[in-house]
Every structure is written in structure tokens, then in C-alpha cells.
Design a protein around this nucleic acid. Sequence first.
DNA 1: CCTATATAGTGGACATAGGCAACCAATTGG
DNA 2: CCAATTGGTTGCCTATGTCCACTATATAGG
Lengths: 153, 153
Amino acid sequence: MASSSLSEALHRLMHAYKWRLRANIRRHQITLPITHIRVLKGVGRLPDCTARVIVQRMGQDKSRVTRVLNDLVKEGLVERSDNPEDRRSQLLAPTDAGVEMLEKVSVLEGEAAACLTEGLDADELDTFLRIAATMTTNAMGHTTEPHRSHKHG
Amino acid sequence: MASSSLSEALHRLMHAYKWRLRANIRRHQITLPITHIRVLKGVGRLPDCTARVIVQRMGQDKSRVTRVLNDLVKEGLVERSDNPEDRRSQLLAPTDAGVEMLEKVSVLEGEAAACLTEGLDADELDTFLRIAATMTTNAMGHTTEPHRSHKHG
DNA sequence: CCTATATAGTGGACATAGGCAACCAATTGG
DNA sequence: CCAATTGGTTGCCTATGTCCACTATATAGG
């Protein structure tokens, strides 16, 4: 049964990965939840980043992103500034503390990735990523229902 | 940066997969959350299943498993019976309704898996599963800390 | 211009998920 | 018998994700 294998394999992998990531986060004395880290990374990496961009990139709910962003601002890791192009939204950028945090995070994620990919060569990792991307697209693709509420990019 | 790619790829894949699964669950008029389905599957598949077995197989917290099991019993999908080998624990088995549910679930997971693996040949899927298993082991493996608390033997 | 509609973001409420620690009861081993 | 361990339960908290309603701005159509 490939179906069952795939399902369980995904759940287990995700569980294990999160576990590893959390362990690393602790070890580095960071108190941010994983989602917050992902959002912070997005803010740091994307040039004219708005909440909308994060929402689209992560496929997450708007309200969730808002709340995470609120937390990050409260923690002094992210700043909002007026968006001259659209007064409904704000531009997001990491503060100095945010940049610092991002560096720590980069290290820590690198360690996690190194841990996971131990014993795999670049070719295999590449294949894995390619298939994962295909699966992601497949899963979100054919909607089976009249949905078409949002399109990504 | 493979690290960042891997991290994001995993998160995205899991998010997309869960989304697809949930859509299928809805379509089949099933009201069980994903975790409950996983636990029910475990109970159905493993011969002398106890809560402990589920905990070990899924790597989940004991308390979580207890609660999910309680729900499943309350829903009439799982039955507990005395374990003659150990009076602390009970043997778990699906009821008739549970078996029925498992059949529906099997269909639905098959559909989800089929959706995800569309355009992938058996070889690629196999590779993917193998690498995923390796990563899972890696992630849980070298603990960085003196842990060695349990091994399944 | 005014109105209708879409879009960006916010917040409330809730469900699902996972973790930590205390605890009980039964088992095991000295 | 006593101590430590193990299987399970419960309380409590955090994290994650979704749905819905709402505000404010933007934009298209009349």
C-alpha cells in the first residue's frame, strides 16, 4: 500500500523534523515558535514584503499571519512602515534585532538540514526536493470543488 | 541554501498534503480529525494493540494518544478490553463501525496519495519514500544530548 | 462623482495538535 | 516488602490552523 506508506512517511518525517528543529531552537536559546521563525525569514528575505506576500508564500491564513506579525513586532524583531503604493498595507522589514535573530536562525536551520540530509548526496537531496515540490503542487492543484478563491502567482 | 529549501519544502508539502487530506475527508462526510484517523488506523492494523504501541509507532505524546483514544471510544469506533498480560493496560480493537470507517479512510487516503503522486513513476515515489525514511531516522537519531532513554526492542 | 466590488489587514472564536508534569495503578527487581 | 519502572490518565499550557465578520482602502462601472 503506497498510499498508507506515503501518508505515514510524511507525518513521521514532519514530526521528526519539527522535533529536531525545536531541539536546535532550544539549544540556541531562542524562544520563538517555528511559525514565527518562518514568517521572520520571509520578512527578511523578501524585498518589499507585505503581509499579503507572506500569506501567499506560506499558504497560511491571513489572520494567522497578522497575529504572528503582531508578535514579532511586539518582540522588536520586525517593523511596519507605511506602504506608499497602497495605504491599506504596510511594508515589513526586520529590525536590527530581527536581522541578528535571522542569523542565529540560519545557523540553526542549517544544522537541522545537515542532520536530516546526513548520508544523502546532493543528487538525492535534489531529487527529494523536486518530488516534494511536485507533490505540493499536485496537492494544492485540482481542487475537486468550485473553489478558485485565490490564485498564487 | 539547501537548508532553507528543505525546511520550506517540508513545511509546504505537509501543509498542502493536510489540506488535500482534509478536503477528501470532507468530501467523504467524515468528521474525524486527521490524528484520530491515524490512531484508528493503528488500532485496526496492529494485532495486540495497546496505547503504548500507538505511542511508539506514531512518536506522539502519551496524553495525546489517551485523549484521541477516548474520543474514538466515545464515537463507538474503538473498544477497549482487559489485557490479560498487564492489568495496567487495555487491548484496543476497532468496532464494526470502526472497521467500516477504516474502509472509507483507506479509499480516501488512496485518493490523496494518488493525487500527490500524479506524474511520478513508481521509481521516483520509491526514492522519495526511502529518502524520507532516512531523514526521519536522522532527525530522531543523534540526540546531541545524553538521552538514550528508550529503544524499541 | 457615487456605488459596487475586490483587496489588505485585523480581530474573535474555535478546533486541532503537541508538550510537560503530576499522578495512579500495576509490574518488576532487589 | 520496598523502590524503581512502566502504562496510562489528567490538568494545564502553548502552538497551529481555519472560519467568519469587520474596517479601510483601492478600483472598476455607471
